[in-house]
Amino acid sequence: MAIQVAPPPRQGMSRKTRESLTGWLFITPTLIIFGLFTFGAMIYAFFISFTDLGLFNEPKFVGLDTYGKVLNIPAGGLGEILNNIFYKALGNTLIFSVVVVFFQTWLAIIFAVILNSKIRFRNFFRVTWYLPSVTASVVISLIFFWMYKQQGIVNAVITWVSDHTVGALFGIHYQTVAFLDDTTTALPSIMAMNIFTTVPTFMVLFLAALQDIPPEVYEAAKLDGATTVRTFWSITLPLLRPIIFLVTVLGTIGTLQVFDQVYLMTNEGGPLGATTTVAYLIYHQAFKDNHLARSAAIGFILFIIIFLFFLVQRRFLDKDANA
């Protein structure tokens, strides 16, 4: 049997053409799925937002009317605008995003630095801390829904701590709160839970970046007599900058879309809209109120907001973009 050294050249098609065709063939399934459910869906949503499509009516082109309805362009002055659920949801979402991203990023950095230093049981901490990140948001929401109740563990811990500190000293007693039923505590409670679940995820990213920093850098700083705090501000933080940018962007995209927690822990974004977020509003408008067009319009506004946030963050945090 003769050993074949080279492939038999196919008739009429060069190697280059064949490679091109194969390339396109290999990405065809991807193109179909992205074309239909991402790009197609995006364009479709854009068209819907200019109609009055509901769940049961034939769509009619209405121009910017749907956006006008969503944004409640002044019909009755500022008071009415503030009552509009869209602005309420937007306000809630922005507060949620800014607070959660701030804390999750800083806590993640701080804990990554602690875990990166020479401590015992490092791997134990690293593995156990990551658990909240692998658990479904549904499950975490249900557990916290229980813990935040008036008879829940959060109230029990606060009661115990206050009884043994200010309670014992000044006789002040802590009144238990139903955290999710109170307009002032409902949203902050969900924020705290969200910080709890995201810190470990981002901590791992920072930890990986910290381990890439060569130890000589720190040794040199030590020789120059730099304090721990000074080393952190002048060496660690600047070197972490690309990861801080990444974490802030990922965190912002995630928090601006918060939905599962609101859906599971509150009664339709209540009490009195205190926990209604934009993502929840998108769902509610479409599948509870049957306003598909309004829902699509809100979705587009959210997309623009996320993009603007991204540009701002890039301006301030991404070194390469500023160069």
Partner: peptide, 13 residues
């Protein structure tokens, strides 16, 4: 692209 933005058109398609 936020996933929630694609939710409604995906449902309709």
């Amino acid at each position: 692209i936020p996933g929630v933005v694609l939710l409604i058109p995906k449902y309709l398609i």
